[in-house]
């Protein structure tokens, strides 16, 4: 804090001395007309550009915040006021009933707890495996490394939609090496069990794991090698080195990947909709909100989006609220973490 203040003071002094010098130079007549022109241009630019920048940024921020402002504006207004032409942004009266209704329709408490459990466990598992794999790729030489890394890149590019159906079949009649058949006499149906999310995460094939491996690999490549060499000399084996030396040094990158992982698991509906028959996660509830709303609030009558928009927006709001709160508190790690970690050096 103090340092920043000092810096500011120094900057101020510098500016003042610069101005004084310019003035003196003008009086002495050292400046050529070109110099004067250049200085004037610079002064104009110094004034005009921030203004221009302000307008651009203001406009773009507005574009981004527009839907969120809209969400806030509609989520708390009574439904009748949606078709009231005299209400544009600020509703005439505020109500919490939309939120309450949606909360019930989405079974929000249960969904959130369920989603959180799924999210955190999957993210932690995928964090462990992806970091291990990334470290393996970053620091060790072995045969076929290039080929295997190409597969990592391929994993980033192939959309999950392609592989979901075969994986679905693998889960429905889960029979790896015939072990389940030997134990229980039949293959196991894993659909609807959270293992369908945990297992791929544990084995480094969860949601966007390829990207995480890539990020970790880039990040570990940037760490100084001397750290580990010192540990090796002291007789540490690579796994212990990884746990005791690398992890403490890579905290920020771990946190960044963990946060992104949480966000993507929270938002995922495609994979969970193929492996869960009931909508038990927030994203699935939100995806089906249109249908469940008309069933539970309008007795199954078909309704236009305009009629239920307040509930839809209220649902949106409570679904992204946990993410938003997390983002506000940890925004530093989202924005600066990724700069310092992997992607920065790529």
């Amino acid at each position: 804090m103090n340092l920043a203040k000092e810096q500011k003071l120094i900057n101020k002094q510098l500016k003042a001395s610069k101005k004084a010098r310019l003035k003196r130079m003008k009086q002495d007549g050292i400046l050529t007309p070109e110099d004067i022109k250049y200085n004037r241009k610079k002064a104009f630019g110094g004034f005009a550009f921030p203004l221009f920048r302000f307008f651009i940024l203001f406009g773009l921020c507005f574009v981004i915040l527009y839907p969120i402002i809209f969400m806030l504006s509609t989520a708390f207004r009574p439904s009748q006021q949606m078709s009231d032409p005299s209400v544009v942004w600020i509703p005439k009266s505020l109500t919490l009933s939309n939120i309450k209704d949606v909360w019930e329709v989405m079974d929000f408490t249960g969904s959130v707890l369920n989603t959180l459990e799924l999210n955190i466990i999957s993210s932690l598992l995928s964090l462990i495996t992806c970091s291990l794999t990334g470290y393996g790729f970053a620091r060790f030489k072995f045969k076929g490394k290039k080929f295997l890394f190409a597969i990592v890149i391929f994993m980033i590019i192939v959309p999950p939609q392609i592989t979901t159906i075969p994986i679905f079949l693998q889960y429905t009649y889960f029979d790896l090496f015939k072990i389940p058949t030997l134990l229980t006499g039949d293959c196991i149906n894993l659909i609807d069990s959270p293992i369908t999310m945990y297992a791929p995460a544990l084995f480094g094939c969860g949601i966007r794991s390829g990207l995480f491996i890539f990020i970790f690999c880039q990040f570990f490549k940037g760490l100084p090698k001397e750290l580990e060499d010192a540990a090796y000399l002291d007789g540490c084996n690579p796994f212990r080195t990884y746990i005791q030396i690398i992890i403490p040094n890579a905290k920020s990158s771990f946190l960044t990947v963990f946060l992104f992982s949480i966000v993507w698991y929270w938002n995922d509906y495609y994979i969970s909709s193929s492996f869960f028959t009931k909508s038990t996660t927030v994203a699935l509830q939100l995806k089906n909100l249109n249908i469940t709303l008309s069933q539970q609030l309008f007795d199954g009558a078909s309704v236009s989006t305009r009629q239920i928009i307040v509930w839809l927006e209220a649902g949106c709001l409570i679904s992204i609220l946990p993410l938003l709160i997390m983002y506000i508190f940890l925004q530093k790690y989202f924005v600066e973490g990724i700069e310092r970690s992997g992607l920065g050096g790529a």
Binding site: T133, L202, F203
Partner: peptide, 30 residues
């Protein structure tokens, strides 16, 4: 050291075969 390298990526390697390559081949066959 290279053996340790395999050790580090082993978990992912197993999963990659079962959750990525195998489904991909199956999909191609379909």
């Amino acid at each position: 050291k290279s053996l340790y390298g395999y050790g580090f990526i082993a978990l992912w390697f197993v999963g990659m075969i079962y959750f990525f390559i195998l489904p991909l081949i199956k999909c191609f066959r379909y």
